[in-house]
């Protein structure tokens, strides 16, 4: 099997993929109503950013990008925990996880 194309994958490819993933995630955040899906979309956006970091790290031969990815993953985990907790609370209250119920938080 010809594996040459792997060597031909450059920084631009990674960046384009990351941009596509980020756009998909953002579209999900802006358009979907389900809180769970929303959280997943946020994860998608975060990971697209991670991908960019890793790509740049490899390209520049520096370790900084890798390290920041660990931070982002930690924060993403924390964010997911808080987000899911909110989702559970909303579900308990309204028997549904629609984002519009968060409007009740308006003062």
């Amino acid at each position: 099997m010809n594996t040459d194309f792997i060597n031909q994958i450059g920084l631009n490819h990674y960046l384009i993929l990351a941009a596509l993933l980020f756009t998909m995630g953002m579209a999900g955040v802006l358009l979907r109503r389900n809180v769970i899906v929303l959280l997943m979309s946020i994860e998608l956006m975060l990971n697209s950013v991670n991908l960019t970091f890793v790509a740049f790290s490899k390209y520049l031969g520096l370790l900084d990008g890798h390290i920041i990815v660990f931070f982002v993953m930690t924060i993403a985990a924390a964010e997911a925990a808080v987000g899911l907790a909110l989702a559970v609370t909303i579900f308990k209250r309204f028997r549904e996880v629609n984002i519009r119920f968060f409007e009740h938080l308006k003062g």
């Binding site: 955040v29 802006l30 358009l31 984002i99 519009r100 968060f102 409007e103 938080l105 308006k106």
Partner: peptide, 8 residues
């Protein structure tokens, strides 16, 4: 409006 997505 209080709509989170709008804010986003």
């Amino acid at each position: 409006t209080g709509n989170v997505q709008q804010y986003a």
